[in-house]
Design a protein around this nucleic acid. Structure first.
Lengths: 112, 112
DNA sequence: AAATAATACATAAGAATCTTATACATAAGA
DNA sequence: TCTTATGTATAAGATTCTTATGTATTATTT
């Protein structure tokens, strides 16, 4: 995803949030969207993406619709009801993470 | 560390930053400090911490000083010169990560 | 006095997530 | 024609963490 290890664990959050905005998306589209939105900072590899999508589907957070476009296969994913709930959870977790980490690394206001 | 998977990959950054502030610390002290600073949000387990410290030492980012206090062993860690440089890198990576993720998940300002 | 919690370190098996490599297939561009 | 782009998929290996276990001393509680 990036040379930084911090992105480890973030992929699910990213997928859910993008699907929450875009209604339905297919895998390759997600990789391109992320590359575009982050101006190349973050590149989702297929080896990470597809297993993640399959897992989310298996967990009932995503549902699939297969389409053939230009004689090529596309698997469109969209959030299920549980998927929408989980999106809220994941976004809260991200906000918490950011807050906690900022608190940990920001120079403390010293009272001495 | 937490029920949230987002913390995966953050431990090194946390350790380096704490040592950057506190000059020298020992492992158990780090776990307590993190618990205190995050008000219990984040608990560093020994199974994660000690291997991480050993790895940082092996990489030459930390150096160790063993002391006996109250007949109990303490291994004080402090940043080496390279460790200080790497701390800067890690903090930049964190700032980048936060910025990128906020950009990804924040509702976009639509121009349409 | 005895049991438990706290302090202090360590490692090993397994889970989870990602990288890297490979595979297949079609369409578009050089 | 060869490479790049589009599109999905999996498998081996690396990395990081969880959970469990082990050892040892000191402090606290029962």
């Amino acid at each position: 995803m990036s040379n930084s290890k911090l992105y480890k664990g973030s992929l699910t959050t990213i997928i859910l949030k993008l699907l929450n905005e875009s209604d339905k998306m297919y895998g390759y589209e997600i990789t391109q969207k992320v590359k575009e939105l982050t101006k190349g900072e973050l590149k989702i590899t297929e080896g990470a993406l597809y297993p993640a999508l399959h897992k989310l589907e298996a967990e009932g957070l995503l549902e699939v619709e297969v389409k053939k476009v230009d004689n090529r296969l596309r698997k469109y994913y969209r959030l299920t009801e549980n998927g929408e709930k989980e999106t809220v959870n994941k976004l809260n977790e991200l906000a918490n993470y950011i807050s906690t980490m900022q608190n940990l690394v920001s120079p403390k206001l010293s009272l001495e």
